[in-house]
């Protein structure tokens, strides 16, 4: 009899465990390392963007080149933002994830500005400066997350 009474308990525990696993599988699928790698990608894109913007700022590029590069890199920044926004972070890194999404979105906006004004030296200089700030923010985030993802 005892064993019969226990069986529903065991089954309930198993079901509860299964449900918990299913529910938990939707949470925390963005690890600290993955987030760090994502933020490092954003920093690298910002560094590359500064090189493109620098060419615009000193009238040392071709506007078609600057526009196409800005469009391509901006698309990559946007993709990174979406990827991070869609991923479910573990509670410990949620604030950093949110900050990373914000930084990536800001970077995508800067690329969009460069794409609109690929021949404007003044805009180029401003975008270069802002991208430097975005890169610094991304690097600070990497620092907060504990350094290189390896």
């Amino acid at each position: 009899m005892q064993s019969r009474r226990r069986r529903p308990g065991v089954a309930a525990t198993a079901v509860a465990l299964g449900v918990s696993l299913i529910l938990l599988s939707g949470c925390g699928d963005l690890s600290r390392d993955e987030l760090t790698r994502g933020v490092e990608s954003i920093a690298a894109l910002a560094a590359q963007g500064q090189l493109v913007a620098n060419g615009v700022a000193r009238d040392g590029t071709k506007s078609t080149y600057a526009r196409v590069m800005a469009k391509t890199l901006g698309g990559e920044a946007e993709h990174e933002a979406e990827k991070l926004a869609d991923a479910e972070p573990s509670p410990q890194v949620r604030p950093e994830r949110n900050a990373a999404v914000q930084v990536a979105t800001e970077l995508a906006g800067l690329f969009s500005e460069l794409q609109t004004f690929p021949g404007d030296e003044h805009h180029g200089a401003l975008v270069e400066k802002h991208m430097g700030e975005v890169e610094a923010q991304a690097e600070a985030l990497v620092e907060r997350l504990g350094g290189d993802a390896g």
Partner: peptide, 24 residues
Amino acid sequence: LGVDPADLGTAALPVQNAYGETGL
């Protein structure tokens, strides 16, 4: 800088950086 040259156009950036539009 940690740049990942995943696009073909990025390969020309060092030359632009050194010699401007003519280099590009």
